[in-house]
Computed example of a mutant assay.
Amino acid sequence: MNINILYGHPYAKSFNKAILEQVIAHLNVRGANVKVKDLIQMSFNPTAGLKDLEAKVTNVLPEEIVKEQEDLLWADALIIISPVWWGGFPAVIKGYIDRVFTTGLIRSSDGVYGLEGKRAYSIFTTGSSEDYIRISRQKDMLYAANDNLFGFAKFSDAEIKLLYSVPRVTLEERKAMLLDVNRFVDRIFDMRPGEGGSTRDSLSLQALEHDLASH
């Protein structure tokens, strides 16, 4: 099993870093081949510039984007580890998606979906309670963004694990969260593609297919 981890927290002593270390160790136990994309350490530029836009016409991508796309194609599954800031991804992760998940990669001009059948498992931490994340519609926004990206790209599965009130929980509760993360990651190994959070009923995928059929 080949797995990419996309990580975007700037603080080396954050709970996100503890999750990252836990996930890496657990994947190693499960025998996975792992590539970690620590975007802060990579100094990844999240801003889509002129060359990124020109690539839509020329198909000549910046070298660093070619490398990231090759790793996406290599991987069977993508794990995202991220805090929730203002209802969504930090800019560095959103920028990675903007620059690396190009239209040509997701769906080529001859209709081939380059990432079809891959799997996505996102682990998000929040500083707010579950009730606040639900009532403020941040949960809806996260699930909609998840569906829009991975449904559109025809991933077979796209699942989310939300960890709430992280700054206020006890050490024991954090340890329990890390064990819960292990069980979440185990789904990659213990379930076949399409058995988990399948994108078959993705609203984004349905909208795409309707749009393609009408043109």
Rank of each mutant, 00 (worst) to 15 (best):
L39I: 09
S109C: 00
W86G: 13
L72C: 13
D140S: 11
N4H: 06
V66C: 03
D38P: 02
S129Q: 10
L78R: 05
I135T: 15
T58R: 13
P90Q: 13
A120Y: 03
G114N: 08
Q41A: 15
P46T: 10
N28S: 14
E68Y: 06
G31L: 14
P46I: 12
G127E: 03
M141Y: 03
V92A: 11
M42F: 03
L105W: 04
R137V: 06
L20A: 06
K118R: 14
I135L: 15
E54F: 02
R137I: 04
V112A: 14
P83N: 10
D140C: 02
P90W: 07
L142N: 04
A18V: 00
I80Q: 05
Q22S: 13
Q22E: 12
G8A: 15
K139R: 13
V100T: 09
I106Y: 00
A55Q: 04
P83M: 08
D38T: 06
F101S: 10
I81M: 07
I93H: 09
L50C: 02
D38C: 06
K35T: 14
A48W: 01
Y113C: 06
I80M: 11
L39M: 11
E54V: 01
K35M: 13
T103S: 12
D110V: 12
Y132W: 15
K94R: 14
Q138W: 14
D98G: 01
V84T: 14
I79W: 07
V84S: 10
T102C: 04
V92K: 04
Q41S: 12
N45V: 02
F44I: 10
Y113T: 02
S129D: 07
K37W: 04
L73F: 04
N28W: 05
L27V: 10
I80F: 05
F89S: 03
D71F: 02
Y143C: 08
V92S: 07
W86R: 13
I133G: 00
L72I: 11
S108Q: 09
E21C: 04
D38E: 06
K139P: 00
A75F: 10
S108Y: 05
F15Q: 01
L53T: 02
G88Y: 08
T125E: 05
G95R: 11
A91C: 00
I93A: 08
R107D: 00
S43R: 12
A32G: 05
L78P: 01
Y143A: 10
S128K: 15
Y11P: 00
T103K: 13
L53F: 06
S122D: 11
I65M: 05
L78G: 03
V112T: 15
I93E: 04
A25F: 04
I40G: 15
M42S: 04
N16I: 09
K118L: 03
L115Y: 13
L142H: 02
D110M: 09
A32Y: 01
F101Y: 15
I19N: 09
S108W: 10
R134P: 00
L61F: 12
A12G: 02
Y143W: 09
